[in-house]
């Protein structure tokens, strides 16, 4: 899936986080491991509007073989999948809670994810999309033992290590002389 074994290049472009915050919330190895091991991704704030960024991301993740779980209080079915009103009401384990809501709403979403872990339902990673940054919520999520990624796009990160992002002319910042994994 990734690019060779153990990519260890600095990925520093297009983030508002400091180097210290990047070390906590944008670790290259952790992102790779998460995208390799995750199967079910809840998308909080997934829009039913075909031209919204969240719709692009969800369609892509579905194409790439992930089970997507739309979370949106105002829809029933998106991309053929049943929609849940909030994170607490998803009745099965999820691996990643991918957040497309404004920073002020992230606290409540993270609380629900932490509660899921306390109840033994699952232990989902928290993923805040590009520019949707709530560092207080990220600290709580990390302290609760949840893998936490901040200010990154899950589609772009998947594309970065799978090679797709590169075909769009983007700077993946990956430097490696090793063969890509099949």
């Amino acid at each position: 899936m990734g690019s060779g074994s153990g990519v260890s290049c600095a990925v520093t472009l297009n983030t508002s986080l400091t180097p210290e915050q990047r070390a906590l919330y944008q670790d290259v190895g952790q992102i790779n491991h998460l995208l390799d091991s995750a199967r079910t991704i809840a998308l909080v704030g997934l829009s039913s509007d075909r031209q919204k960024a969240s719709f692009f991301v969800a369609g892509y993740l579905k194409d790439e073989g992930y089970r997507i779980v739309p979370v949106n209080p105002k829809a029933d079915i998106i991309l053929g999948e049943k929609v849940y009103p909030d994170v607490a009401s998803i009745p099965f384990p999820v691996d990643i809670v991918d957040i497309f809501r404004p920073a002020q709403e992230i606290d409540g979403i993270v609380d629900q994810a932490i509660a899921r872990k306390e109840k033994g339902i699952d232990s989902p990673a928290i993923w805040m999309q590009l520019r949707l940054v709530n560092l207080a919520a990220a600290e709580r999520s990390l302290a609760a033992g949840l893998t936490t990624i901040v200010d990154k796009c899950v589609k772009m990160e998947h594309g970065r290590y799978r090679g797709g992002l590169h075909f769009a002319g983007m700077n993946t910042e990956i430097i490696s002389a090793r063969k890509r994994k099949r």
Binding site: S8, A10, T12, N171, I175, K179, R180, R182
Partner: peptide, 25 residues
């Protein structure tokens, strides 16, 4: 302690953008 590396200009000049492909290398 080896951390993620920000590679230099000359290294990127010969490597950036090309990871050998999985099939032919």
């Amino acid at each position: 302690r080896p951390g993620p590396r920000k590679f230099g200009f000359e290294t990127r000049m010969v490597h950036a953008g090309h990871v050998p492909d999985a099939h032919t290398g």
